[in-house]
């Protein structure tokens, strides 16, 4: 069945951390909020006081409680390359460089986030508990 590999991946996620240094939630929060880094709030609601209501996007699902819904492995897969779950997703791949068209020279061959930033971001997202 065509979807099988993707589905298997969806269940498993990416269990192996990208770095040896454990993610730091405080740094990860900066990655989520900073518009030069993860810039998550451009599309998602993030329940942090730094982003007042109305100053976040609503393209993607709210990240409120995401730490209760998804495991570290599942979050990692969604951040590293969400197209492995849904080829039509609008969410960029934050730690992949393949399959892109006409990337601006200064970003060519580079990932949006570093491996450590991805791990920090996961640590932060896991602190967002609740329904």
């Amino acid at each position: 069945m065509l979807l099988a590999p993707g589905m298997a991946l969806a269940q498993a996620g990416i269990a192996q951390p990208l770095t040896d240094v454990p993610g730091d939630a405080t740094r990860g929060k900066a990655v989520a909020v900073n518009s030069d880094l993860g810039n998550c709030s451009i599309c998602h609601h993030i329940p942090v006081p730094e982003i007042p209501d109305g100053a976040n996007g609503d393209i993607g699902p709210p990240l409120d409680g995401v730490g209760s819904r998804l495991t570290a492995a599942e979050l990692r897969q969604r951040i590293v390359n969400p197209t492995t779950l849904d080829p039509n997703t609008l969410m960029p791949a934050y730690f992949a460089t393949e399959g892109l068209t006409r990337v601006q020279t200064k970003y060519a061959g580079k990932t949006i986030l570093t491996a450590q930033q991805v791990e920090d971001l996961i640590a932060f997202l896991l602190t967002l508990k609740g329904n």
């Binding site: 518009s35 030069d36 451009i42 007042p52 109305g54 100053a55 996007g57």
Partner: peptide
């Protein structure tokens, strides 16, 4: 006055 940050402000 609330000044929202533009989407692509960078």
């Amino acid at each position: 006055v609330l000044v929202t940050v533009g989407a692509c402000d960078t």
